[in-house]
Design a binder for these strands. Structure first.
Lengths: 213, 213
DNA sequence: ACCTGAACACCGTTCAAGT
DNA sequence: ACCTGAACACCGTTCAAGT
C-alpha cells in the first residue's frame, strides 16, 4: 500500500516556478534559498540536490526569461528594420515584466544560452541587412547596449530624479541654466518615447552606414 | 598632557578612501561593513556614527566616482559633437577604472548628485546643438542608455561568450548559420571599437534629426 | 535517490554601555 | 562626540545522517 502523504517530489521546474513567484510577490530582497525553501515546504538543503548553488539558480531563471523572446506563436518579421525593432521591443517588454530580476540579470557576468540566441538573431538580421561582419558585430553591441541601458533606466525610473521638484531652490544653488525649458519635457516624457527615439537614432545611423558602404 | 595614542579620528573621507581601496584590491564580494572596519582598525559599529547604513556609503562612493567627470584640469570642448563624445568617453573611462563598483552602481535605484550634473551637461549640450527640449530629453536618455549598457557589456566582457570556442560542436546543435563569417570579427573586435561605432550611430541620427527639423 | 538537521562562517544593524 | 561589544535576525553552504 503506497503512502498517502507522498508529496510531488521537488523538481527543478517547481523550484524555478516558485522562485519566480516569490521574487515577483515579495521582491528580490526577500528572496533567499531559505525563504524559497520555506515556500516550497522543504528543508533549505533539499534545493541543493537539484542545483549546485544560488548563482546557478539565478542563471536558470535568466535563461527562462530570455526563452520568452522566441515565443513560437509570434514569428519575427522578415524585413530587417522591423526585425530589429521587434527584438528590441520584446527585450523591453521582458525587462518590464521581470523588473525585479532584471537589474541583477544585467549585472551578471554570464550570458544565458537564450541570451546568446538573442544576440545571434540580432547579428543575423544585421548581416541580412547588408552590413559587413565587423560592422554587424559593432552595431549589434550598440543595440544590445542601448536596450540594456534603457532597461535599467526605465526600471529604476532614473532621470525622474535628474531635476528636483523644487525648481526655485535648485536654480539658486546650481549653474544649470536650462531648468525652466526642460522641466516640462522631463516630467511629461515617458521612457517609452525615449526608447523609440533611441531606436530611431540607431536605425538612421545603420541606414547611413549602408549607403556610404 | 595630551594622550599619545590619539589615532586620527575616523572621518567620512577616510571611510570612503579605505572603501575604495578594499573594493579595488579584494573585490566587491569581499567588501562588507565588517571587512571595512577591520581595514580601518576599528569596531564595525564605529562606521555607523558617520553614515546611516551601507546603502548610503555606497551612494557616497558613486557620487565621488562621478565627480571625476568634471575634473577642472580638463575642460569640456565647446563644439557640441565633441562635448558629447568627450562626456561619453569619460563615462567609459570611469566605468573601466571602477569596474568592481560599476555594475552595482548601474543597478542602483538612485542617482548621485554628480550623476544628475552629468545628465544636465548632456542636456545642455543637446539644447545648444539645436534640439527641441523634448527631443533633447529623449536623445539624452538614449546616450545615457547606450553608455550605461556598454559599461556592463565591457566590464563583464559579455559577447565573448556569445559564440563558443568550439565551432564544430556549435554548428551541429544550432540553427545559427553565420558562425563562420562572424567568428573572426567576434573574437578580434574590441568593445572600444563597438563603443565608437555606437557613438557614431547616435551622432549620425542626431544630425539627421537636426536637418529634418 | 531524495530529503533533513545541525553546524560553520559569515552578513547588516540595534541597543546599551563605556570614555 | 566618538567608539566598543554583545546580541539579533538573518545569509549561503558543508557535512553527516536519515529513509
Amino acid at each position: 500500500m503506497a503512502k498517502v502523504k507522498t508529496r510531488t517530489p521537488l523538481s527543478i521546474e517547481t523550484i524555478h516556478q516558485t522562485a519566480f513567484l516569490v521574487i515577483h510577490q515579495d521582491g528580490l530582497e526577500k528572496f533567499s534559498m531559505r525563504t524559497l525553501a520555506a515556500r516550497l515546504g522543504v528543508d533549505p538543503m533539499a534545493i541543493y540536490h537539484h542545483i549546485p548553488n544560488k548563482e546557478a539558480l539565478m542563471q536558470g531563471l535568466y535563461n527562462i526569461i530570455f526563452g520568452e523572446l522566441f515565443s513560437p506563436t509570434q514569428p519575427l518579421p522578415t524585413q530587417w528594420q522591423a526585425r530589429i525593432r521587434e527584438l528590441a521591443y520584446r527585450f523591453r517588454a521582458l525587462a518590464l515584466k521581470y523588473h525585479q530580476l532584471f537589474p541583477s540579470l544585467i549585472a551578471s557576468k554570464y550570458l544565458a544560452y537564450n541570451q546568446v540566441k538573442a544576440i545571434e538573431a540580432l547579428l543575423s538580421t544585421l548581416l541580412d541587412a547588408g552590413l559587413e561582419p565587423t560592422s554587424a558585430v559593432q552595431v549589434s553591441d550598440s543595440v544590445l547596449a542601448m536596450v540594456t541601458g534603457f532597461a535599467i533606466l526605465e526600471i529604476n525610473e532614473l532621470r525622474n530624479n535628474a531635476l528636483p521638484k523644487n525648481t526655485a531652490e535648485f536654480e539658486s544653488e546650481s549653474e544649470f541654466k536650462h531648468t525652466k525649458e526642460l522641466l516640462e519635457p522631463l516630467t511629461s516624457n515617458t521612457f517609452k518615447n525615449s526608447f523609440e527615439t533611441g531606436l530611431q537614432l540607431i536605425m538612421t545611423g545603420i541606414e547611413a552606414k549602408l549607403v556610404t558602404k
